[in-house]
Structures are given as C-alpha cells and as structure tokens.
Simulated scan of single mutants.
Amino acid sequence: MIEHFDHGYITLAVAFAVSMSGSALGLLLSRQARLHTGTRRRVQWLLPAAFAIGGTGIWVMHFVAMLGFDVDGAILRYDPLMTAASALIAIAVVACGLLVIGLGRITVGRFALAGLFTGGGVAAMHYTGMAAIDSTIELHHDPAYVASAIAIAIGASTTALWLALRLQKTAAMWLAAAVMAIAVNAMHYTAMLGVRAGEATGDEVHGAHSIELIFPMAVLTAVVLLFLIYTVITAPSASELHNEARLEALQESFETRLR
C-alpha cells in the first residue's frame, strides 16, 4: 500500500508554508527587478527570484512532501546527486522563464513559450526526483496522472510568471503566493496519486534515507531564505531609486558644466 502522508498531514502543511514563502519572496524580488531599466540590474534581481520560486517555492516543497511518501513492505532510498540535480532543474527553468519575460519586449507568443518551458521543466524536476528513488519494488507512473500533472505544472508556471510580471502591491503578492502554493502542491500530489507499486525487484538498494537528507536540506534552505529575506528587506524602494537617479543626473550635469 502506498502512503503519501506517512508522518501525518504535517508534511502537507509544512510543504504549503514553504512553497508560499518562497513564492512570495520570488514575487517581491521580481517586482524589484521591474524598477530597473538596465539588463544587468534586472538580471541581478531575477536570478535570486528564481532561487526563491524554483528552489524554495517548488523544489523544497517537493522534498518536504516526499518525506511523507512510503510504501508498505518496501525500502526506499534516494540518490543524493540525482536529488540535487532535480533542485538545479527547478531553479534553472524558473530562471529561464523569468529572464524571457523580464528582459526585452513581451509578446503573447514569448509569454506562452516561457510558461510552457517552465512548466515542462517543473514536471521534469518532479520526475527526476522520483527517478532518484531506489526501491526494493518497481514504481510505475500512470500516464493519465502524468499528463494531468504536466498540464497543472504548465498552468501554475504560466500563472506564476504572469503574476511576477504584473503585481505591484505587497498584500496582493502574498495572496498570489498562496495561489501559487496551492497550484504547486496540486501538481505534486496529482503526480503522486499516479504512482503504482509493482513487483519486488530483489535488488539491493543504494542511497540515503529521506530522513538523512533533512538536516543538510534544512540548513541550506535556512541559509538561502535568510539571504533572500535580507535582500528583500534592504532593497531600495521606487522613490529611493528615483531620487538616486535624479542625484546622479544633477551630478553629471554639474560635472559637464565644470569642463
């Protein structure tokens, strides 16, 4: 029997909270990127946003939710390198999506392509994480659930990119982050409902138990979150950037007159 909440529904609550926090930070960082016109400055804000949304909002949510995954009578172990690779995939595809819509002229085709690519990448992250599992039984994925999970991932990613591009008010961003967290969780658990337990393999399993990965994952997540929170708190406001630009313009004008 497959169990998705082996430790109770606490994993669902924690996964949602982590996903919402990461999504909110990503939206706040994306808003900061829109305050700048230069490509370099925008990239400097969009990349941390990708870490917030892709790393924390999506991948850490996936990892926390997987802590509740178990199969009666089976041993499950995780390949650390492939698990890390799934995290890099999540961050990379979100970064690509944000850079596509955050730099240059926005068109419907470009926006749709970014959502499609990012959503497909999020689904790839999930199934890469699943492929990292080494078990004493075979695990299969129902194609109908796979297709549904991919569709949800594309819809969630497109929504996230649109929100990152449009929202301005902080209160609205937290509400949007909750919507994004619901979508990400829906994608994950839709995919997990499609997991089917097969025959015993009889092979020896290799890798780490999910519990053994909690400490390094928690430390890394805490460090990244603290850095992102510090970045958001210390980010200059629109009025501060405007005043800074005026001051630079006056200084440049003054230096020109002295020449």
Results as ranks from 00 to 15, higher is better:
residue 58 I to S: 02
residue 182 I to C: 12
residue 174 W to G: 05
residue 185 N to M: 09
residue 53 I to E: 03
residue 194 G to R: 04
residue 65 A to L: 06
residue 121 G to M: 05
residue 244 E to K: 12
residue 161 L to P: 04
residue 240 E to M: 04
residue 200 A to S: 02
residue 129 G to N: 02
residue 60 V to F: 06
residue 199 E to H: 08
residue 49 A to I: 14
residue 149 A to C: 08
residue 175 L to M: 07
residue 155 G to Y: 15
residue 99 L to K: 07
residue 215 F to T: 14
residue 2 I to Y: 00
residue 145 Y to N: 00
residue 106 I to G: 00
residue 164 A to V: 06
residue 116 L to I: 12
residue 226 L to S: 15
residue 108 V to K: 05
residue 72 D to L: 03
residue 92 A to W: 01
residue 104 G to Q: 05
residue 147 A to I: 02
residue 153 A to F: 01
residue 85 A to L: 15
residue 188 H to A: 03
residue 105 R to I: 07
residue 130 M to F: 04
residue 216 P to Q: 10
residue 83 T to W: 01
residue 89 I to F: 04
residue 70 D to H: 10
residue 215 F to N: 14
residue 59 W to P: 01
residue 221 T to D: 08
residue 215 F to H: 11
residue 89 I to E: 04
residue 73 G to S: 08
residue 167 L to K: 02
residue 45 W to N: 05
residue 154 I to M: 07
residue 104 G to I: 04
residue 9 Y to V: 11
residue 61 M to S: 15
residue 143 P to L: 12
residue 13 A to Y: 06
residue 6 D to A: 11
residue 204 E to A: 15
residue 87 A to V: 06
residue 144 A to E: 06
residue 114 A to W: 09
residue 196 R to V: 10
residue 88 L to A: 15
residue 210 S to T: 13
residue 251 Q to T: 13
residue 33 A to H: 01
residue 60 V to P: 01
residue 57 G to K: 09
residue 28 L to I: 15
residue 70 D to T: 10
residue 159 T to C: 06
residue 132 A to S: 14
residue 234 T to R: 15
residue 25 L to C: 10
residue 46 L to R: 01
residue 239 S to H: 09
residue 200 A to R: 06
residue 145 Y to Q: 01
residue 239 S to L: 03
residue 167 L to R: 00
residue 69 F to S: 06
residue 79 D to S: 09
residue 192 M to D: 01
residue 136 T to I: 10
residue 112 A to Q: 05
residue 162 W to Q: 13
residue 126 H to K: 09
residue 27 L to P: 08
residue 74 A to I: 10
residue 23 S to R: 03
residue 148 S to G: 09
residue 121 G to D: 03
residue 255 E to W: 07
residue 210 S to L: 13
residue 183 A to G: 15
residue 245 A to Y: 07
residue 19 S to R: 05
residue 128 T to D: 06
